[in-house]
């Protein structure tokens, strides 16, 4: 394994991570499942690519605008779909995600189904870009979910009716959650575009949305560090299994079912790493106390 290869895998992990952090807000903390976020990723990817290639906008600014574009579309879609319940919402997001992909597929000025190439003189997403953006996102989102707004998200996840009764504007918070997830996924799309330098609508299909959601779930719903671990594990494992190439997704699918059957809470089961550390600390303190008593 060459260093360049490892770097690419790390960047890929970082891009997935950003998308998963975004989706974690929606799925893990607000309890809404989306099978259409690949659509937002496509919007972010194409927006950023058009900005850097055609208009010469700098990379970081293009990413920001890409995220906002995805967020803007999410507001429209959210307004239309967030009143739907359960499976209806999931199928609606699926419908929107696929519609967005098919629109890109059909729209010829940006390559259509043949794809859109970014010339090589334009900035490639580097490892440091990925680290910086992820750190910012992690800090912002960690603060958000521990704030009043974050608690409202969790309240909606646990008991929608009760949250409404205590005066939380459910629709607005669902919109906010949907918007945040779309912005982060859109930025991730922009970074992806500038990693591969080639965009093709086929890569943003429902399978992509499913993978993002599965990473959130395997990491543990309602755990930000769980999402981080889930992403790292699920982006790395397939790379290690590269020797079995075709078999890796067979194992992946099997793993998903296994986790659902055996440990549906996911790896972290709603706990954060900090909770885990606190628990370990408490155990240590208690053990020390027992020792002192016996002495």
């Amino acid at each position: 394994m060459s260093w360049a290869y490892i770097t690419t895998v790390l960047i890929m992990t970082g891009i997935n991570l950003l998308a998963v952090i975004g989706l974690s807000v929606l799925t893990g903390f607000t309890g809404l499942f989306s099978f259409g976020h690949a659509g937002f990723m496509a919007i972010g990817a194409y927006t950023s690519a058009i900005l850097t290639v055609w208009l010469g906008v700098p990379y970081y600014l293009a990413l920001l605008i890409a995220g906002l574009a995805a967020g803007l579309i999410s507001l429209v879609i959210g307004r239309l779909t967030l009143k739907l319940k359960g499976d209806y919402f999931i199928i609606a997001t699926l419908g929107f995600g696929e519609s967005i992909r098919l629109l890109f597929n059909w729209f010829d000025p940006i390559g259509g189904s043949r794809g859109f190439r970014i010339p090589s003189e334009i900035h490639y997403t580097s490892l440091s870009d990925v680290i910086i953006i992820n750190l910012i996102a992690l800090i912002l989102i960690a603060n958000l979910i521990n704030s009043r707004h974050g608690r409202n998200f969790k309240a909606i996840r646990e008991e929608e009716m009760a949250s409404q009764v205590i005066g939380i504007n459910i629709f607005r918070y669902k919109m906010l959650s949907f918007f945040i997830s779309a912005v982060l996924v859109g930025i991730a799309g922009g970074m992806l575009a500038h990693l591969t330098h080639f965009l093709i609508p086929r890569n943003f299909d429902m399978t992509k949305s499913t993978f993002l959601t599965i990473m959130v779930i395997l990491g543990g719903l309602g755990s930000l560090s769980g999402s981080v671990i889930g992403t790292v594990v699920l982006t790395f494992i397939p790379e290690f299994l590269r020797n079995f190439n075709e078999w890796r997704y067979v194992i992946f699918g099997f793993l998903v079912v296994l986790v659902m059957v055996l440990r549906p809470k996911g790896l972290m089961g709603g706990y954060e790493i900090s909770d885990l550390l606190r628990w370990v600390k408490r155990r240590l303190v208690r053990r020390r106390g027992e020792k002192n008593e016996s002495a």
Binding site: F33, D87, I90, T207, T210, T213, I214, I217, E246, W247, Y249, V250, F252, G253, F254, L255, V256, V257, M260, V261, P264
Partner: peptide, 19 residues
Amino acid sequence: YYIISAMGISIFLENIVLA
């Protein structure tokens, strides 16, 4: 959880045929 489990099976079946 059923939906995710179903997705897992769908990925599993598709890729076992691919492989």
